[in-house]
Simulated scan of single mutants.
Amino acid sequence: MSNNRYQKQNRHDTNSDMINLVDNLNRAEDLKFNRRAFLKSAVGASITLGLATLPFTGLALTNKKEAKHRVEIAKLADIPKDSAFNFTYPTDDEPAILIRTKKEELKAYNNKCTHLQCPVFYEKEESVLLCPCHKGYFNVETGHPMAGPPQRELPLIQLEVEDGIIYAVGRQTRHE
Rank of each mutant, 00 (worst) to 15 (best):
V128T: 08
P90F: 05
P119D: 01
V43M: 01
I79W: 05
K81D: 05
Q117E: 09
P55D: 05
V169Q: 01
K107T: 03
L54D: 03
N111I: 08
Y89Q: 00
K65A: 12
D23G: 06
M146V: 04
N3D: 09
H134Q: 09
L156E: 14
A42P: 03
V22H: 13
R27M: 10
S46T: 03
F56N: 08
L49R: 00
H175T: 11
Y109L: 06
N86Y: 09
R35N: 13
K107C: 07
A96G: 05
K75S: 02
E176F: 15
M146N: 08
F87C: 01
K124H: 06
N86M: 05
H175G: 09
Y6M: 15
T91L: 02
P90E: 06
T114E: 01
N10R: 10
Y89W: 08
L129V: 00
S83V: 02
H134F: 13
T53R: 10
D78W: 07
R27E: 10
H69N: 12
N110D: 14
S83P: 11
T142Q: 09
Y137A: 07
Q117D: 10
V169T: 09
K40S: 10
T48F: 00
D93E: 14
K124F: 01
A147T: 11
G58A: 14
D30A: 15
R11V: 12
Q9M: 12
S41L: 15
E153P: 07
D13M: 11
D78I: 04
L49Y: 03
E125H: 05
M18G: 04
P90L: 12
T57M: 12
T101E: 00
K68T: 15
R11E: 07
V128N: 01
N20M: 08
D93F: 15
L31H: 12
L156R: 14
L21M: 15
H115A: 03
N34P: 04
M1R: 13
A60I: 03
F33C: 13
I47D: 06
P80D: 01
N63V: 11
T57W: 14
D78R: 01
G50V: 01
Q9L: 15
I79L: 07
R35A: 08
A77M: 03
